[in-house]
């Protein structure tokens, strides 16, 4: 499959995301924030970083980048979209996902090998995991606290839309220990931890993250 990785000014993890896409057996396609063009890709990854310097709010400016108009339209047609960290923030600002990401409750940047439970394996990004698989994936964020009103939280829980949940410790004050969620249709996933940094034994805490990129092929999503 051809998977696009968007580079915004201030993106940090686009190269790692592209590498993870290739390691999972896909072709990675570089997408540029200023181009309203998805170059015919089958899926899109919005990588981590500090797009537009996190000015105003994390993801608030990126949400209006020309490429995002296309991403939002494609997501509406069912194209798989994965937002990692800053990408998750952009998806929330774009209203493709509910809620928002706020500054860590302990006010410090967090960087750790984080244990997670993958609770929803029906999305194209998580289909290669066993239900309730416990994995370790790197987490690094300053504004990763997931918040939403009580009604939204109940909806996410009731509809099984919590994709990943923090285990052992809640690293950033996220409500309900939420590490990642999906939209109603299940094609858009936002995730605060970084699976693209957990794809090779040489670096990081193992290869548990590879599954986020490996699942697409199995589904034959196009």
């Amino acid at each position: 499959m051809r998977i696009g990785v968007v580079t915004f000014p201030g993106s940090l993890d686009d190269a790692d995301a592209a590498r993870a896409v290739r390691l999972a057996g896909h072709e990675s396609v570089a997408l540029w924030h200023g181009d309203a063009d998805l170059r015919g890709v089958d899926a899109v990854v919005l990588p981590g970083g500090f797009s537009y310097g996190d000015y105003l709010r994390c993801g608030a400016i990126s949400r209006f980048a020309p490429v995002m108009t296309e991403v939002i339209a494609a997501a509406g047609r069912g194209m798989p979209v994965l937002g990692i960290c800053n990408g998750f923030q952009i998806l929330c600002e774009s209203h493709l996902l509910p809620g928002a990401l706020t500054r860590n409750d302990h006010r410090r940047f967090v960087c750790r090998d984080q244990r997670l439970r993958i609770e929803n394996v029906r999305t194209p990004w998580t289909s290669s995991y066993a239900e309730n698989a416990e994995v370790t994936i790197v987490l690094k964020n300053g504004e990763g606290g997931f918040v939403a009103d009580e009604t939204t939280l109940e909806m996410l829980e009731g509809e099984g839309r919590v994709v990943a949940r923090y285990l052992d410790v809640n690293p950033n004050g996220s409500l309900h220990d939420i590490a990642g969620i999906t939209n109603e249709r299940g094609n858009v996933v936002g995730l605060m931890p970084h699976p693209e940094h957990a794809v090779e034994d040489l670096t990081g805490a193992g290869t548990d993250g590879l599954g986020f990129f490996a699942g697409l092929a199995a589904l034959g999503v196009a």
Partner: peptide, 9 residues
């Protein structure tokens, strides 16, 4: 109802 860590600091 939203925690304001900057205000707390």
């Amino acid at each position: 109802e939203i925690l304001d860590p900057q205000g707390k600091a």
